[in-house]
């Protein structure tokens, strides 16, 4: 028997102390596991070359059409909403931010959330539950969909070009420095966390429903509302209701708006207000909520078939 074999019993004190030291040594390395997931996904994607290329093309053409659509809209109007400050360049910064958040979600989580739903239906979640590592971590990361990453890069390019336009325009007041990248990335991450949590909660419902194929559909409905500046909702009753729902119930609006404002500064508005604080709170709160729902759901897992 090799020396690393854990002792069989913790009868005596000396044995239990060696056991503890062994456990410290044998604890999983989350970073290594994640890197292995990322690497394996890349190897897998590369082995289905055409599929990978087509997927890249599809996501990038979606971005191009999305961009084209708003170009057309801005032929008709100067800004989205009167007096909101979301003129064309500002709005494209907003759009770029959305692309970056979406790209994170679709690269790292979308395929996994769908897979999670499938694991529940087929009973293959068993394997995840057997592993000595956090189960939510294990089901959140196994597939990295590299083909969705180009959208994020396009988003970054769109932001840089628009920022450049804004800086060159003498009529605009924009105070931007290289340091803004840090609060921007921080709030983008808050956004990713909130969207991730929404997705985990949606996927967890599969445990009770037996099957949830509506993940993409739900995702589409929900993201439809976070893709616009919140000012456009704040006009009448229905708008306010939507704004309140997607700010306080499912806090997705605030996490797309805060990072975009960090860079776009519509009407020179500062991003440092209650919404910024609330975005952090929302990110932490949704993560806690998603963990709660996930663990609750696991309790009801039945492990289909043998």
């Amino acid at each position: 028997m090799s020396a690393t074999h854990p002792p069989r019993r913790e009868d005596s004190a000396s044995e239990s102390s060696t056991l503890e030291s062994l456990q410290a040594r044998l604890s999983p390395s989350y970073l290594h596991v994640f890197l292995t997931f990322a690497r394996n996904s890349l190897v897998r994607d590369m082995s289905f070359r055409m599929n990978f290329i087509l997927q890249c093309c599809a996501t990038m053409s979606w971005a191009a059409m999305n961009f084209g659509l708003f170009k057309i809209i801005y032929r008709h109007t100067e800004s989205i909403g009167r007096g909101t400050g979301w003129f064309e360049d500002e709005f494209f910064i907003f759009l770029g931010t959305i692309w970056i958040i979406n790209s994170f979600i679709q690269t790292f989580f979308m395929a996994n959330a769908e897979e999670f739903s499938e694991l529940i239906r087929t009973g293959n979640l068993d394997f995840a539950l057997l592993k000595p590592i956090d189960t939510q971590f294990l089901i959140s990361f196994p597939r990295v969909n590299w083909a969705q990453l180009p959208n994020g890069v396009l988003g970054a390019i769109l932001i840089l070009v628009s920022l450049n336009n804004l800086a060159a325009d003498p009529d605009r007041t924009i105070y931007i420095s290289i340091w803004n990248i840090f609060p921007f990335m921080f709030y983008v991450m808050c956004g990713v966390l909130v969207m991730y949590s929404v997705m985990i909660v949606l996927a967890s419902t599969s445990i009770w429903l037996g099957r949830n194929q509506n993940l993409y559909t739900f995702w589409f409905y929900v993201t439809n509302f976070y893709r616009y500046p919140m000012e456009i909702y704040q006009r009448n009753g229905i708008g306010m209701a939507l704004w309140a729902t997607f700010t306080f119930v499912v806090p997705i609006l605030v996490v797309s708006n805060v990072p975009a404002r960090v860079l776009a500064q519509p009407m020179g508005r500062s991003w440092m207000n209650w919404e910024a604080g609330y975005a952090v709170l929302a990110a932490v709160g949704s993560l806690v909520a998603s963990r709660y729902v996930f663990n609750l759901a696991l309790k009801s897992y039945r492990s289909a078939s043998s």
Binding site: S27, P28, T36, F37, N40
Partner: peptide, 18 residues
């Protein structure tokens, strides 16, 4: 879709085997 060796390596990291 991957060689078994890759899955073994993943288990190595999950179980933290030196």
């Amino acid at each position: 879709d991957l060689p078994a060796l890759e899955s073994f390596r993943l288990n190595q990291h999950i179980y933290g085997v030196p």
